[in-house]
Amino acid sequence: MSLFWRIFGLNALVLGVATGLLLWAPVTVSVPVLLTEAVILVGGLAVMLVANAALLRVGLAPLDRLTREMPEVDLLRPGQRLPVPGRGEVAELIRTFNGMLDRLEAERVTSSARTLSGQESEQRRIAQELHDEVGQSMTAVLLGLKRTADRAPESLRAELLHMQDTTRESLDEVRRLARRLRPGVLEDLGLTSALASLADDFATHTGLRITRRFTAGLAPLDWETELALYRVAQEGLTNAARHAEATHVELALSGTADGVLLSVTDDGRGIGVAREGAGIRGMRERALLAGATLNLGPGPHGGTRLALSAPVPGKYA
């Protein structure tokens, strides 16, 4: 039965019962209306309204659930679906809504994959240009300053040596940026070595005290999963250094029953109720593409704990 006929039937039932009571019940209306008659009429109207409201509430309850669910849907948290209540128009509407979520989630995964792939390609290109063009140019400047300083008079040598030190520091910063844009150590030495290098780099340049806890003998992962783990660790350390006001961070990588678990735990001010920014949304997109689960919440002793659980190849469909 369609929603229209169900609502029409409910109202017809209530009105039919009321009409039957007026026709066969020993109740009349005087002019002017007596108090007892007014009480009976008002009471009957109240009963009709309550019965009609209750019946409509039952009939429209699935639509209320759908209305509450729609604002909560997040394509980066897949699997949110409504139960389908039997058959009919409301059930078909909910089935259509669930099907729409299936299509949107699939399209989001596809578009995110293309976006992140393009982003990684662009980062590799920029890193290559920083290394080949900017790095070589600054190296040439550094050598030129050294030769000039060797031939310069004593009055200028100190200033040239200072410029040489500044140029050397800038060259180191360019190389560090190139390594962050294109994690060559991840390609060459694997995930554990790349995370160790990342932790050392952050500890050196941010002053954070970083504890590493890596389990040996982890299951082999594909390149996309390793890249997702590396980028999430990179973003987690960046957030701890920039926003958490942390002094100590623990970076851990361990095996699980069906994959690996990466966690970044800091002793900062905690995540609170702040809205998720672009960094966290980017981590959720990477987790979604790798078939991983990302959890962000308070740490065991305060601060924030970021955990990414990724499956090994063949255990995620």
Rank of each mutant, 00 (worst) to 15 (best):
T204S: 14
Q119G: 01
E224Y: 02
I271E: 15
V273E: 15
S170F: 00
A219C: 06
G291F: 08
V73A: 01
A149L: 06
A196Y: 08
I280S: 01
A233K: 01
V47F: 15
V14I: 11
A310F: 07
L181I: 01
L21R: 01
T110H: 12
A61V: 06
E69A: 15
T247D: 13
D102M: 02
S30M: 05
D150L: 12
V27S: 00
D165R: 11
A257W: 06
A25I: 00
V42W: 10
D172W: 11
G255P: 04
R124P: 00
V185P: 00
L21C: 02
T192M: 08
A219E: 14
D188N: 05
R231V: 03
T225C: 04
T192Y: 00
P62A: 04
R284T: 00
T206K: 03
R168K: 12
L227A: 08
L229Y: 07
S121R: 12
A158N: 03
V47A: 15
L56T: 09
R182I: 01
G299A: 10
E133F: 07
T167I: 07
I7F: 15
R6M: 12
L41H: 07
L21A: 05
Q234K: 04
M163S: 14
R286H: 02
E89S: 13
P71K: 06
A278F: 11
G16W: 10
G16N: 03
V58S: 14
G79V: 08
R180W: 03
H162E: 14
R168N: 07
A219R: 08
P311Q: 04
A274C: 03
A158E: 12
R108Q: 14
L101H: 08
A290F: 01
A216S: 09
A233H: 02
A53C: 04
R125V: 04
H243V: 10
A53W: 09
L294H: 06
T167M: 10
R68G: 06
H162K: 13
V42Y: 09
R212M: 05
G236R: 00
L229E: 05
A292G: 08
A152M: 12
L289C: 04
T211W: 05
P78A: 10
L294V: 11
T115C: 00
L104H: 02
F97N: 01
A18C: 03
A307D: 15
G184F: 04
E235D: 06
G299M: 13
D172H: 11
L253K: 09
V50G: 04
D150N: 12
L171R: 04
P220D: 13
Q80P: 00
G217W: 10
R108Y: 13
L237Y: 11
T215P: 02
V27P: 03
A54D: 08
A252W: 12
R6G: 13
T148Y: 01
V58D: 13
L55D: 10
R57T: 14
L63P: 12
R231L: 01
N98R: 00
L130W: 06
E122M: 09
M100W: 13
L145R: 03
R151W: 08
G135P: 10
A228C: 05
S30I: 09
H205W: 11
H131K: 10
P298R: 14
Q234V: 03
A152Y: 12
G297A: 15
